[in-house]
Design a protein around this nucleic acid. Structure first.
Lengths: 316, 316
DNA sequence: TATTTACGATTGATACTATCTATCAAAGAC
DNA sequence: GTCTTTGATAGATAGTATCAATCGTAAATA
C-alpha cells in the first residue's frame, strides 16, 4: 500500500519544481525526498519526474498521478478535520476567504467577536478574487467564504449576512456633489472609474452603471479600492463604493459619498460553505457572531430596511 | 499525518467487529492491530471502539470516522489503479459485476474471448443484484457491470451490448404450447411465476405481464431462474425467460419456449462504468470483446434485427 | 577553456516504530 | 471450578525513513 508521505512529496515536487525547495516545504532533507521519490517511482514502475539540470518537471504520468494524489491527500485532511471536530466541535483551524474589496473593511468589525466567541479556533484569513476563492473552497484549502452572492454559486450552501448598498463617490466639485441622494438615472453619460478585471465589484458596479447609461473610463483600471478612492479624490472621475468601505474611513474633504434612492444598487454579502461541510456547529457560531458584529453597520438606512429584515435566514 | 495502514485497521475492525479476525484480514497479528488502534485513538483524542468482552463496536465518533477513512482508502486505491494502468494499460485486476439472471448464461460465452484478448488482466467476477452492484460500482469495489439498463442508472456511463428478448416458457400441455409465436395480449388472465423480490428480471417481466393483464402467482417466488424453469416444467405455471437462459440449455421435452411477436418484451443488456473511469482502454477492449463474443447469440431474430443494429454504440 | 555555481544523487549512520512471539487477564460457557 | 475466547501487555527485532556529509554533473560565468 502506498504511503501518504510519498504522495505529499510528489505533490511538493510538482508545486516547487525543485527537489530542495520541495524538501524544505515537507520539512525533510533533500536526500530524503529524493530517495523517497525514487522509491515511489520504482514501486509504481513509472518515471514520475523529469530531472533536467535546471528544470524539474513531472512526466505526463506523474502529472496524472499527482492529481490523483491530491484527492487522496484531501480525503486524508478531511478525515483529520472530522476527527478534530469530533474531539472538540469548537476547536481547530478555520480558513476563511474574502474578496479584496471587502476584507479590509469587514474584518476589523468581525474578527474581535469571532475570536472571543470561538477562543479555541485558529482563524486563517485569505484575500483572493471570487473565482480563486471558489476553487479553494472546492478543494478544501478554504472552509468558508465571505463574499457577494452570485447565482453561479448555487452548488454551495449560503447564509445571508447583509445587503450592502453601493454609494456614489464624487469629487466635491462634481455636479452631483451637492445632492442628498441620487438616482441611478443620474449616472447617465457620466464616466465611471473601475477596478481591474477579476474583481466582482467591478462586474457588479459596471452592471448598474451601464444599465443607467454611464460609461467606463477605459484609460485606467484601479488595482484596489483605495486607489480608486484616491482617483475620485483627485477629480479623475466618479465611482461606486460599497458602504463598508465608506463608513470605515474618516470623512474626507475631497470626496462626497452619496446614497442612492431606492432601488439602491447593492451587493448581497453572504457566507458560503461546501454542502455537507462537517463542522456545522462551528459555522453556525461563526455566522451568528458575524451577524451580531455587523448588525446595523453595513445595511441600508435603518428606517427603510431594519437589520432584522436585511439579515434573512438561509437554509438553516 | 495519519497513516493509511491505521485507516485500514479501523475499517477492518468495523467490518469484522472482532480484533482477531480484523487482524487476520489485514495480515498482521492481533496485538499489532490492537496497539495501532489504540495509538490512533490517542492521536485523535477520541475513543473509536467500544470494547465489550463479547461484542466489539464502534463508537458514534468511530462510525463517522470509518466512513471518512473509507473515502481516503478508496482514493488511495484509485491512485494505485491509475498507476497500474499507466505502467501497462492492459494489465491489472478487473472486477466485473453481473446479475444472477445473466451471469451463468452469459459468462461462458464471453470469458474465453476476454481472457484471450486481455491475457495480462486478472478478471474477478461477482454475482449480485442490481442495487448492490451499483453501490459497489460507486464505491470502487467493482470496475464494470453487465446488466439490463434502467433509467435510474443515468449518472453512469453506458455501452449497449444487445437487446435480449424475453421468451414465454410454458408446459407442453399449456394452451399456448403449440403456437409458433405469441403476443403479449395472449398473457391475459394467465398466472405468471416470478422470481423473488430484488431481481430486476422480476420487475421487468412483471411489468410486461401486468400491462398485458396477467397475474402473479403470489403463493410462490423462485430464488433462481433454474428453480423457475423447473416450476414451469412441472406444470405449475408459465413465466418469461431471457433468451440467453433458453439457448444455453439443451432443448427440454418438458418446456416449450415461444418467442413473442413484435413488439417483443426485451431487456437491454449493457456495460456500465463510472464516469471518468481511468482505465478506458481496458474498457474499450472488454466491450469490443464481449460484443464480438455474443454477436448474433442473444439478439432477436436476425432477419428482423441484425446484430449490427442491435449492438448500437453508446457515447464512444 | 577553466572555474564556479546549482542541484540532484549517493553514502553510511541513526533513530524510530510497526511488527512479531509469548504471555496475561477478564469474561463466558459448561 | 476448568476451559475457551478475546483483547491487552511486554520485550525483542527488523525494516526504513531520516539526516549530515559528500559526490557528480550540467549549466553559467569568466
Amino acid at each position: 500500500m502506498i504511503k501518504l508521505r510519498d504522495l505529499q512529496y510528489l505533490d511538493a515536487i510538482d508545486r516547487h519544481k525543485h527537489f530542495g525547495k520541495a524538501a524544505d516545504a515537507c520539512f525533510v532533507s533533500q536526500p530524503t525526498l529524493s530517495a523517497q521519490i525514487m522509491k515511489l517511482e520504482e514501486q509504481l514502475g513509472l518515471t514520475l519526474v523529469e530531472r533536467h539540470r535546471r528544470n524539474v518537471m513531472l512526466t505526463p504520468a506523474g502529472d496524472l498521478l499527482v492529481k490523483q494524489a491530491r484527492k487522496v491527500l484531501n480525503a486524508a485532511r478531511e478525515f483529520e478535520d472530522a476527527a478534530k471536530t469530533l474531539s472538540d466541535p469548537l476547536a481547530g483551524d478555520f480558513h476563511i476567504g474574502l474578496i479584496p474589496t471587502l476584507a479590509p473593511y469587514l474584518l476589523p468589525h468581525i474578527m474581535p467577536g469571532l475570536m472571543q466567541e470561538l477562543p479555541n479556533v485558529s482563524f486563517f484569513l485569505y484575500e483572493k478574487q471570487t473565482k480563486q476563492l471558489l476553487a479553494n473552497l472546492d478543494n478544501g484549502d478554504l472552509d468558508l467564504l465571505i463574499l457577494p452572492w452570485l447565482d453561479e454559486m448555487e452548488r454551495f450552501e449560503r447564509y445571508r449576512l447583509v445587503e450592502e448598498p453601493l454609494l456614489l463617490a464624487v469629487h466635491p466639485q462634481h455636479r452631483l456633489a451637492g445632492h442628498e441622494t441620487v438616482k441611478l438615472a443620474d449616472l447617465r453619460d457620466e464616466t465611471v472609474l473601475t477596478l481591474e478585471d477579476g474583481h466582482c465589484l467591478r462586474d457588479q458596479a459596471m452592471g448598474y452603471c451601464f444599465a443607467a447609461g454611464a460609461e467606463e473610463d477605459t484609460r485606467f483600471q484601479a488595482t484596489s479600492l483605495e486607489t480608486l478612492r484616491y482617483m475620485v479624490a483627485s477629480g479623475s472621475g466618479i465611482t461606486l463604493l460599497p458602504k463598508l468601505a465608506v463608513t470605515s474611513q474618516p470623512a474626507s474633504q475631497m470626496i462626497r459619498y452619496i446614497p442612492f434612492e431606492a432601488p439602491q444598487p447593492t451587493r448581497e454579502i453572504s457566507v458560503v460553505i461546501r454542502p455537507h461541510f462537517p463542522r456545522m456547529e462551528c459555522v453556525r457560531r461563526v455566522v451568528a457572531s458575524i451577524r451580531q458584529s455587523i448588525a446595523g453597520i453595513a445595511g441600508g438606512d435603518s428606517k427603510e430596511q431594519p437589520p432584522a429584515v436585511a439579515v434573512r435566514e438561509a437554509a438553516e
